[in-house]
Design a protein around this nucleic acid. Structure first.
Lengths: 150, 150
DNA sequence: CATCAGCTGATAACGATTATCGATATCAAC
DNA sequence: GTTGATATCGATAATCGTTATCAGCTGATG
């Protein structure tokens, strides 16, 4: 199931003299069991269901490892807390977020990507990544608003 | 000099029964005296030079007012802290940031803007704003790297 | 110049993240 | 399997940015 990710992490750890432990495997499993855009707290909660002894600090430490290993990626921030999403076998994408209900649509748009490359060229930069967040009101919330009296 | 912004703020405050005070005027002046992408702490520091008695809490409170009044806008986050930029007479723009030296280029690209609108239509969303951050290495840092042995 | 709602600065509280520390688990070598 | 050096664990304290609290103060209005 999640064998690929486990092997990636194990190799990453071995390469720098770190160890594969129960706790780290549990956090990885918990993270993979959740949908995109999870907080450290949500991962901690999920990990506790697999092993109630998992500490909060270990979750934070392991998330950092997962990020460095290329398995997780910081997605955005829910006002205060950082949110993470899967990065392995999940191609690059941008986010379209509903400001009313919080729904998130992931999308890729080739003309946006091309236009971004043109901007890099225009200013002589070498690209190393980008973050695009579109905010708006989703069709469902538009309908809800229209029905509720406006 | 900054008369426009002062009047904007004064009107905003009056409209909701709030008061124009020394402290608020000082924070506004401090904010306007700084370049784009400032932290609350930097604004506090600048405000203290104008009036050493200005408290940190007042700076946070006033930044919120400036944001609501349309004079400031949350730009991005320097890892942990929120950063703010001028929003009055500063048209919408996106950011191109050098990951080596931190330099920020502000730009507008009409084909990116158009492509974003197409994405909104594709998913039936009504737009309410977006945030685009491009990351890369600026020409200066590319040259620095090339010279230093690579 | 009195009044009162709004403001102020100091300080405590808060939540997310990070550092500390003694006890424990891991892995490689025997 | 045992050992041992060392990474790791969970609990807890510490940090940092931000927000809430509160007693005293200020500014617009009459």
């Amino acid at each position: 199931m999640h064998g690929d990710e486990r092997i990636i992490l194990e190799r990453y750890l071995r390469e720098r003299g770190l160890k594969m432990t129960h706790a780290r495997e549990t956090v990885l499993t918990a993270f993979l069991s959740l949908e995109s855009h999870v907080s450290a707290d949500a991962i901690h909660e999920a990990a506790r269901k697999l092993d109630p002894g998992i500490g909060q600090a270990t979750v934070f430490r392991t998330i950092k490892l997962l990020t460095d290993a290329g398995l997780a990626r910081e997605a955005c921030r829910d006002d205060n807390a950082r949110l993470y999403e899967h990065a392995w076998n999940h191609a690059h994408h941008d986010h379209l977020t509903c400001v009313e209900c919080g729904a998130v649509v992931e999308f890729v748009d080739s003309s946006i990507e091309r236009a971004q490359e043109a901007v890099y060229r225009r200013f002589g930069f070498v690209s190393s990544g980008h973050r695009l967040e579109l905010y708006g009101i989703c069709p469902g919330c538009q309908a809800k608003k229209a029905n509720s009296g406006l």
